[in-house]
Design a protein around this nucleic acid. Structure first.
Length: 487
RNA sequence: CGGGGCGUGGCGCAGUCCGGUAGCGCGCCUGCUUUGGGAGCAGGAGGUCCCCGGUUCAAAUCCGGGCGCCCCGACCA
């Protein structure tokens, strides 16, 4: 990479900005494997923080982790009709191993419903074995034609939850609960407020009865499907003989759900908060929340400055803050400042000989609130003790900004034609709320002529006060939907 | 699979039209000086010019064939 000082501006070419930022903030890099990326420590650190938060929420709602094989017999995938249709074109298949051709090929899992429910069939006999609530952290592979760092890679990291229940209502409630967890995670941790709702039949998961999703608007106005939760009904149970005896002694098929979120979230984080200086990581997900940057003077001074920097980092850690000292003294201070800005560390502490002499530090947040000071000089103790509150305020600020951007990109009005829908999106609308007749033909036309899809039929709290009456495809609206151009 | 572009030190590129010593910026190494917003100076290392074949005294450059990658579209989390 040539030594370019800044990035392409978001307003010039959002997609170029994204690619540059991801690479130069050292989140990820292209690998020798087509479509697969290397996640570098800073990017992986963000993912680890996401994992911890989500994992805690899953455990708190009664789920346990387990692990299933990477390879799935091809015949398993082929068992559920819609499921094969959806995934067949993007399967990577293992045909040889141990120097021989395999009798039955394996696919590298594009998702694990089939192998997991095959195992559940073995474990579940009675209603007493239900519900079975497992989650797996792992990787999956979908051979996409066009890939983008984090947003769509051939191999991706994710979690996939798979549950089995004794009745439909309980499975439905589970699918809903998990959607709610994703939503809360996105708001509370990512500061990325999504809209939730149900997918149309055309957009639902291959093999599901119903799919729920969190959809977020990125800064360029495009929608990102950030997590999904599926009510699978008895579709997979029937194909894998996942049955149990109910209280009355009769045999029934179990009801399943599956839900997942992937490293795509990291891409969403970048596109939600990033600015022309680089990534902005919300404090709750930052691998290092505070970076102490020592400014070395002469050698004797340098030693004092370093000692003070370590002392401050220790004090911050005792306060429960993730802090690190940037000891790269052979790099100029300016270069180190820019480096952490690019990476999006929430707060920087500058510690130089002058500060040490006065018992002060310079506190610099990654993003400055309107009217706020860019740099503040504080006493050491004050800076340390106030850090948690400062980080909390930053987190809230980011959520507020993201909400405001989502609202600014939201249009609610009667849309009488596909052309009108395209016009709104061309003018910068992100989410367009309109009516829909329920006719799939309208979706097809909108996709072709406006490059837009129905992201979700929004949940009640997101719906407009007055239900729209027109459908872009003509005819009467039967429900309100959200249109967007999506990643 | 259709349309377009590109393969030259680690990265980004110039050189190709018009054949004749392989260059620039960044990065890297060493030394000295420097550190409060992307350090300076001096010295240095590093290249089968994507591959194969042809033309020629001579090929990064011309001719033929192949391979790979990127972008746009179709497909999709």
């Amino acid at each position: 990479m040539s030594k370019r000082k800044g990035f392409t501006r978001r307003s010039e070419d959002f997609s170029a900005w994204y690619n540059e930022v991801v690479q130069r903030a050292e989140l990820a890099d292209y690998s020798p494997v087509r479509g697969s990326m290397v996640i570098r420590p800073w990017g992986y650190g963000i993912w680890e923080q996401m994992q911890h938060a989500l994992d805690d929420m899953f455990k708190a709602t009664g789920h346990e982790n387990a692990y299933f094989p990477l390879l799935v017999p091809l015949s398993f995938i082929e068992r559920e009709k819609e499921h094969v249709k959806g995934f067949k074109p993007e399967l990577a298949v293992v045909t040889h191993a141990g120097g021989k051709e395999l009798e039955e090929p394996y696919v590298v899992r594009p998702t694990s419903e089939t192998i997991i429910y095959a195992m559940y069939a073995k474990w579940v006999q009675s209603y007493r074995d239900l519900p079975l609530l497992l989650n797996q952290w792992g990787n999956a592979m979908r051979w996409e034609l066009r890939t983008r760092l984090f947003l769509r890679t051939a191999e991706f990291l994710w979690q996939e939850g798979h549950t089995a229940h004794a009745d439909e209502a309980e499975a439905e409630a589970e699918a809903r609960t998990m959607l709610g967890i994703y939503r809360r995670f996105m708001e509370d941790w990512m500061a990325m407020p999504p809209v939730t709702g149900v997918k149309t039949d055309g957009e639902k998961f291959a093999g599901a009865v119903r799919s729920y999703a969190c959809e977020a608007v990125m800064q360029d106005g495009k929608a990102l499907q950030a997590a999904t939760s599926h009510m699978l009904g008895q579709n997979f149970a029937k194909q894998f003989d996942l049955t149990f005896q109910n209280r009355d002694g009769r045999e029934e098929f179990a009801w399943n759900t599956s839900w997942g979120a992937s490293t795509r979230l990291v891409g969403g984080l970048v596109m939600t908060h990033g600015d022309d200086a680089g990534v902005v990581v919300p404090p709750k997900l930052a691998p290092s929340q505070v970076v102490v940057v020592p400014i070395a003077g002469g050698e004797a001074e340098g030693a004092g400055v370093l000692a003070k920097s370590e002392e401050l980092a220790d004090a911050l850690r005792r306060e429960g803050v993730r802090a690190r000292v940037d000891r790269r003294l052979d790099m100029s201070v300016g270069a180190r400042f820019f480096d952490w800005e690019r990476k999006g560390a929430p707060v920087r502490l500058e510690v130089g000989p002058r500060d040490v002499a006065r018992g002060e530090v310079v506190v610099v947040p990654r993003v400055v609130r309107e009217g706020g000071a860019r740099k503040e000089t504080l006493g050491e103790a004050e800076a340390v003790e106030g850090m948690r509150a400062r980080l909390r305020a930053l987190q809230d600020h980011l959520l507020g900004e993201a909400k405001a951007r989502r609202e600014a990109r939201t249009v609610r009005q009667e849309v009488g034609s596909v052309r009108e829908l395209a016009g709104l999106l061309d003018e910068g609308a992100g989410f367009v709320y309109s009516g829909w007749s329920g006719d799939p033909e309208v979706e097809r036309r909108a996709k072709e002529e406006a490059k837009a899809t129905i992201r979700v039929v929004p949940d009640e709290e997101f719906r407009s006060p007055a239900a729209p009456s027109k459908c872009p495809g003509g005819g009467r609206a039967r429900m309100e939907v959200i249109w967007a151009r999506a990643y």
